[in-house]
Simulated scan of single mutants.
Amino acid sequence: MTVYVDPPAWPAHGTLFSHLVSDSSLAELHALAEAIGLSRRAFDLDHYDVAAERYDDAVAAGAVPVDGRELARRLGASGLRVPGRARRAAKADALLARWDALLPGARDVGVDLVERWHEPHREYHGPEHLVHALDSLALLEGRPAGVPDAAGTPDVHGSGPAPLAAGPTASVTQLAIWFHDAVHDGEAGRDEERSAELATTALAPHTDARAVAEIARLVLLTTHHDPAPDDRAGALVSDADLAILAAAPDRYARYVRQVRAEYAHVPDDAFRAGRAAVLRSLLDAGPLYRTPFAVERWEDRARANLVAELADLGR
């Protein structure tokens, strides 16, 4: 495992910046950044931005100097690289614009949510996951990615649009995705409870009680991803949250590394045992997905990813 840094060459904020990357481990990257006093807010999903005056500190701490082309090659080969489009979509400004289009007049709620999704301890459960889940939900609902549904939210009983919208353009399913990991402290079950409580409090001034209750219910459903057969809204939210399991192999591998980084404090043997138990429970619990689209397009690929990861853990 090696950390690399390129020369300061990227202008911003009145100075030049370098990039700091790892060839295999986000935990290793964070450790070196912490050693030289970099804030986690300097982390941009797959690299740290390092001001010119900290370049020598990075090298002294063990970062290997390389040119920009070599650094990009090393990052690409690491499996940790986040494509530029995904990184731009996860930026705070982009997410806030998306929120404003979804629920106009609730900017304060959006600002708080975006800050939460960008908390520095998040590796997988961060803004990239939020964007991916929102885009996956749009795909399941037949909307273009990034465009709020102005026609209302899907009926909770599965019969098409229903007047359960939380605002002029907001849908309950989209708001549930925004809130489903809004609290993420690594406490399974309790995180979802706190996220549902946050949704209830934050949305009460902006929508009716029936919509708020439904959003909270959908957030809690992501604890176990077990919607009832007639719960179409629950199926949509659950499938969107689990869409990452059906990602292409390179994206799935990055997801696996991100999950491991979130549990960097757990020893390898304990993590492998715990992660293997999670994977087996997913594989043994029946279908991963509940919507017809996801069952047809995602189920087989997701199971193949889970089986492959389980085999890697065994090795």
Results as ranks from 00 to 15, higher is better:
T2N: 08
V5G: 03
D6Y: 07
A12W: 14
T15D: 06
T15S: 11
V21I: 15
S25G: 12
A27H: 11
A35G: 09
I36H: 05
R41M: 10
F43C: 07
D44N: 13
V50D: 03
E53I: 08
R54D: 14
A58H: 03
A60T: 12
A60P: 04
P65T: 06
D67Y: 09
R69K: 14
R69S: 13
E70Q: 15
L71G: 03
S78T: 05
S78W: 07
R85K: 12
A90Y: 00
K91F: 09
A97V: 09
W99H: 06
P104G: 09
A106R: 02
V109F: 05
E115M: 07
E115C: 03
H118L: 13
E128P: 00
H132P: 00
P144L: 10
A145K: 05
A145F: 03
A150L: 13
A151H: 14
V156C: 02
G160V: 11
V172Q: 03
H180A: 00
A188E: 12
G189L: 09
R190Q: 14
D191I: 07
D208R: 15
E214N: 08
A216P: 07
R217A: 06
L218V: 00
H225D: 02
A228E: 13
P229A: 09
V237H: 00
D239N: 04
D239S: 02
A240P: 01
A243Q: 03
A246K: 01
A247H: 10
P249N: 10
Y252A: 03
A253C: 09
A253M: 04
R254I: 06
D268H: 14
A270T: 15
R275A: 06
R280H: 12
L282E: 11
F293D: 10
A294E: 07
V307Q: 14
A308E: 14
E309C: 08
A311K: 13
A311W: 01
G314E: 15
